[in-house]
Write a protein that binds this DNA or RNA. Structure first.
Lengths: 296, 296
DNA sequence: CTCTGACATAAACATTCTCTATGGCAACCA
DNA sequence: TGGTTGCCATAGAGAATGTTTATGTCAGAG
């Protein structure tokens, strides 16, 4: 095989000696001089505390102890070499990994990624969804699509979708509990919150209401959920009013399953940012171009 | 385990990192500083060509590639450690190994070694019989009992049994084909030869006949065998006359199953020599003392 | 008897491995 | 909110290991 084997020191030297029955032959196979091989064998014999080979005038033979160790080393090296091959194969196979949050994955990326795959049939796409940013920059993803503001990301990050938020509910809920002509009317309804462990990086109901100059009595019947999919599911099942991020809920709004029931709040330096990670290659460029070409 | 593990370099370091999820923790376990561990992991990531761990602010996690390699390394190290334990256990268990030839093993050593074992019940005795000298000094035996002349052995070798040879046959054969009052009479009988690949180190029929001043017509009906046990078996089954080494055939002569039918040839600087190999210890001394105390 | 080729050792040098020192920084806590 | 903690990273210096060339020994072959 053309790829360089992992350097496992004396293990590979001993395996070659045991298999070939010759220090000189092992050296030839491994690109080492015969004294280098001799040195390594003696060193490991010192550690084990027993001769591992019996040296003949020409060539050598494994002792009983050497046979025992040889079997273990041989099979161990086989496994390690196999694993290295497998790792390297998966590196060079045409895969692209996108790290993002569950909301973006569900509502924006998964519906669209079929188009990318149709355009690039030889590329496997792996979507890695996560609750937080943990793991976004660990080197295993090719792109990260993350929500935040400009200052949160490296200079080369590109804004994929600015943050534009409207209150939404199902049309049935509006018929039953509406109309909601006045922003103040929303403050008397059960609101659906997207919660997170730390400080939210996105617009919340608190932000939206403050933007409308509306003060709210302590919430009654509100619902907090930790995944945006559950938030929208609750809205669709008429449990309250949710905040809808344009770009994520477009299909529901276009189909009429959700309706906007208040003014939009927009933050132009906030939104989903695309960060390309690791070294550039053709596949990453194809993905980046495709993502940036999507209509807002 | 109290014994020092084999130094397998990065393999052990990587296994500890993968198992503990911490570079610092792995270093603590292996007696290395944290930068030393960090250095090793980076080195192997360079060889593999992929990140193997994702570094978090506190601690780390294996990547998919790292998991693949970890499994192989973990099981490989287990096997190697097991083999090392097995080798060391067999080193320190109370065993003594005697290397000798088949003849000596069969006719001298095996009948007597029961006495040694009765005297030293805590010592296991392994007899390693071989056709030649190959392997006699490979470091795996505690004692070698070999046939040859003085000059063939190191100065500290002790003569266990000088070479004394008489022609022997079964009493039935003598009754049928004898008597053999004159050495010349033997030369007309089928002779049983102990053969070997190279030049024999022992008395042969050629040597014996020349010592009697007897010339022999080309052999008719002679039999050559490569193991002394087969030679004596052939003599016992009345197929001819064999050379009998005193010391090896004593029991047959005493019991009457074999009878001497000619004069003895003796070579005082030839015979079975005892060579103690490797480092001295209590067990070896016990064996040496016992062997040297045996009556000739 | 001479030659061959494989293993051993010595000495010099190259490379790797480890340490200490120090920086960066996220998470925790008062 | 600021200080502390503890883990990972890098740098530089020195220790330890690994390798080479040179050379010796010697059993086996011709």
């Amino acid at each position: 095989m053309s790829e360089r084997k992992l350097d496992v020191g004396w293990l590979r030297i001993f395996e070659a000696v045991g298999r070939l029955g010759s220090l000189t032959g092992a050296g030839a196979e491994l690109g080492l001089s015969q004294p280098a091989v001799s040195y390594q064998i003696r060193r490991i014999e010192e550690q084990v505390g027993a001769p591992l080979i019996s040296r003949m005038h020409r060539g050598c033979k494994l002792t009983a102890a050497g046979e025992t160790l040889f079997r273990a080393v041989h099979s161990g090296i086989e496994r390690i070499d196999d694993a290295a091959r497998q790792v390297r194969a998966s590196l060079s196979s045409p895969v692209i990994r996108i790290f993002t949050d569950y909301g973006f994955a569900s509502f924006w990326l998964m519906p669209r990624v079929a188009e990318f795959r149709r355009l690039h049939p030889g590329i496997d796409v792996h979507v890695v969804a996560s609750q937080g940013l943990e793991g976004a920059f660990d080197g295993t993803s090719d792109a990260a699509i993350l929500f935040g503001k400009r200052a949160d990301f490296p200079g080369e990050a590109r804004l994929l979708m600015p943050e534009r938020v409207v209150p939404v509910c199902s049309s049935g809920y509006r018929a039953r509990c509406g109309p909601f002509d006045d922003p103040r009317s929303l403050s008397r309804q059960p609101l659906l919150h997207l919660e997170t462990a730390g400080k939210p990086r996105w617009v919340t109901w608190t932000t939206w209401l403050a933007a409308q100059g509306v003060e709210r009595e302590p919430a009654q019947g509100d619902l907090g959920l930790n995944t945006y999919g559950f938030v929208i599911q609750a809205a669709l099942s008429e449990q309250g009013i949710a905040l809808g991020w344009l770009g994520l809920v477009d299909a529901h709004l276009a189909g009429g399953s959700l309706v906007a029931v208040g003014p939009e709040v927009r933050r132009d330096d906030c939104g989903y940012w695309l960060v390309m990670t690791g070294e550039g290659n053709e596949r990453r460029k194809a993905l980046s171009d495709w993502l940036l070409s999507q209509p807002q």
